[in-house]
Amino acid sequence: MLDVEDLSVFYGDAQALDGVSLSIEQGEIVAIVGANGAGKTSLIRTIGGMHRPTKGKIRFKGVDITGWPSYRVCDLGVGQVAEGRQIFPNMSVLENLEMGAMLPRARKLKARNLEHIYGLFPRLKERAGQFAGTLSGGEQQMLAIGRCLMGAPELVMFDEPSLGLAPAIVQNMLAIIRTLNQDGLTCMLVEQNVAVSLRLARHGYVLENGRIMLKGGGEELLADDRVRQAYLGL
């Protein structure tokens, strides 16, 4: 579904990604793990069209989307849930969700998707009229996911969905991602929380200093000595 080939990205002189290649099949969960500054967010931003790569190709559903602006990438079905729950704090919960459905592909599906999201996150329905900035951290993360789903995406890139959430809520969040995946959504999970995300994913990639250092099955990577030493402290 998504094929990234030899992707290199620079911010000025600083290289954020160096020849990254990866592929995601329809219907799977793929984890990209790595430490702070490894290039995880750069990868999402580049695939999402918010940053132009200097080299390499990105293909989604067979379409070359390299260098496309983000609104076109979104409209093709690539959604992203940004790091740190980027919601619109002074807009109501409902307005936040409506913002997600502005894409041409999602406009007609708005009512149905809203119903679906309220079913998934009843809390958002209860708070529909409230300013999004007044929600708790976990609720804001739900809203960020809900807004993304309003765009009727086929692939969602999650940037650190567990960041800054209480452990119980992290479990809840992962359960939601699993449910969405079972309903047919392809997920790319970008995480510092290596143990949790590799357990959830079918495939994983380990990103270090902008390069893919390791790749393999989720459980396989978890058993790998290098991963255990570097990320799990075992």
């Binding site: 609104y71 940004a82 619109f88 807009m91 502005m102 894409l103 807004r147 993304c148």
Partner: peptide, 25 residues
Amino acid sequence: SKLGLYWQAIREDQEAAEASGVPLF
């Protein structure tokens, strides 16, 4: 209008607006 909602989104969080598919430019 829809325009006002887009503008508000850009004003509140440009990155999030872009990630939601608002044609910023």
